[in-house]
Design a protein around this nucleic acid. Structure first.
Lengths: 220, 220
DNA sequence: GGTCAGTTTAACAAATTAGTCAAACAGAAT
DNA sequence: ATTCTGTTTGACTAATTTGTTAAACTGACC
């Protein structure tokens, strides 16, 4: 009943709270198909309930889509922000962001594709995202993301331990290298002739090779 | 007539070939909304024609979507492949890929988001993509992408002019840094507090900073 | 002027899909 | 046992959306 197709993964147990089961099913369906491509009936089927029940709990597709979007944000950003805002030394930040983010994305393969697609199709959500993120203001968030990091980078540049780089570029380059392969996963797999296992293995390797590459670029 | 909404850009002149006008309109709409979110009527409106005419020329939404997808592939890959497969020295390849790709993406801001979303929602298209790309076989394409480049990298590593790196990682890291910012454009703009002009300026800068960063990482 | 092929349109049909609602149901409290 | 509340369902509606078709139009050619 929860299992909807031969290759579908069984998700939330049937005895779990119905609302949770529906949200989990919605999460899975929205991730794979995107908001526009998702069908309320498919979500109901995947949750093992009548589709009227989905409306009973979430009223409209829009509300359900919002709930899923918020959840997706909550999975993607907090860890990374926490690491970057911490007092850990720069090398450790790089290694920890790469490892934590890759671990998370190995378990949520559709997350980057889903988030990027949603943001491209409904760019106004980018603002909503900023506000709903860790409950602070956008300005505050920027401070957390780039403040400490910027200070560390300034100091390192003065000491001559790191080549100068703006914190924005630092974060953008690092996130690019970590996230892009997952966002473009079907493309990367096809071009390199990989199967799922090979891709997973490559990304495990990249937990080490990305930080090595990245830190090498910042040698003075 | 072609202009459909206040903030819409006028596209193809009304006296252009009707089929071309429809394909251009479809291109624009599919890019912004994705295949699932696009409406045949919106395409017709944007092309300034009756929506039956869209079916007259392209039969079904699926066929039109395929035509647009093929066109998008044709815009995205050929230049990059050409540069990477060429005999230019490594440093020049890096600089030329970055510059050419960023130039192209500045003019097609929705392209990466569209392609990544389509590939995530319909992963089977990745195969189609490989085959329809430059008319060669996947194996042949891999050879063009990684063959010459691999030889150059091997030699450079032996000479001690470059740190050793596999051609696959070389390409993946480079493409990540170039493309990701465009794919995540609404997110990047929101987090960094940028407007369109600032984003464009940053990407112009990155034509130089990405190659610098990238080549610095490969110093021995 | 007439006709002929290709183009364009208005009107229509068919299917899909979000959302509603009254009735059935289940379990707890009285 | 009865009632009551929150849950679940089947049947329905309304709107949207893809696709079709016959007729109208247009310009080239005779």
């Amino acid at each position: 009943m929860v299992k909807t197709a031969a290759d579908e993964i069984v998700q939330t147990p049937l005895d779990a709270d119905t609302e949770t089961r529906i949200l989990d099913a919605a999460h899975a369906v929205f991730m794979r198909r995107g908001t526009a491509g998702a069908r309320m009936t498919e979500i109901a089927r995947e949750a093992g309930v009548n589709h009227a029940l989905v409306h009973y709990y979430f009223r409209s597709k829009q509300r359900l889509a919002d709930a899923v979007f918020r959840r997706a944000i909550g999975e993607f950003f907090p860890v990374m922000i926490g690491v970057l805002a911490s007092d850990a030394p720069l090398e450790e930040k790089v290694r920890r962001v790469a490892a934590a983010q890759i671990d998370m994305l190995q378990k949520n393969r559709y997350l980057p594709g889903y988030l990027l697609a949603e943001l491209n199709h409904y760019p106004e959500r980018a603002e909503q995202l900023l506000n709903s993120m860790s409950g602070t203001t956008p300005a505050n968030l920027r401070a957390r993301l780039f403040g400490t990091l910027g200070t560390q980078l300034d100091e390192a540049a003065r000491n001559g331990t790191f080549r100068a780089i703006r914190p924005q570029e630092f974060v953008l380059n690092l996130v690019s290298m970590v996230v892009y392969a997952f966002a473009a996963r079907p493309l990367v797999m096809a071009i390199m002739g990989m199967d799922d296992a090979t891709f997973t293995a490559m990304m495990e390797e990249r937990k080490a090779t990305i930080p090595a590459f990245f830190l090498a670029a910042l040698r003075p």
